[in-house]
């Protein structure tokens, strides 16, 4: 396995940012996998990219904008049909305010 001591992966922090929770066995395996993946990714660093503009769209296309007008109506009942829990047109979640 490659040396990955300099990555300092704080998996608990990363997982929290991504809103994921991992049990203890998963944590060990995932940390090792991530270290290997980041080692592989780090091979990018040896490529000289000075004076290269980053490319966000493969065809360098610009974001197309449409006229700001209403084109469709939202059918709330239809959209909420696939929601796990609703009531009176609202999405239900655990209590947020004590």
């Amino acid at each position: 396995m490659a040396d990955s001591s300099d990555h300092n992966i704080d998996l608990v922090h990363l997982a929290r940012l991504a809103r994921l929770s991992l049990d203890r066995d998963d944590q060990r395996a995932t940390t090792s996998d991530l270290e290997n993946i980041i080692d592989m990714i780090d091979s990018m660093q040896k490529i000289d990219t000075s004076d290269v503009a980053p490319m966000a769209n493969p065809l360098d296309a610009n974001q197309r904008l449409r006229a700001d007008r209403v084109t469709e109506e939202v059918d709330r009942n239809q959209f909420q049909a696939s929601a796990p829990s609703t009531q009176d047109g609202y999405y239900l979640v655990p209590r947020v305010i004590e």
């Binding site: 992966i9 998996l11 990363l14 991504a18 994921l20 929770s21 995932t30 991530l34």
Partner: peptide, 19 residues
């Protein structure tokens, strides 16, 4: 999210979050 996603999806999300 932890129940809904499989191992590879989690790895990719974590890689992206790291980056």
């Amino acid at each position: 999210r932890s129940e809904g996603f499989g191992a590879e999806v989690k790895r990719r999300i974590l890689t992206g979050t790291y980056a």
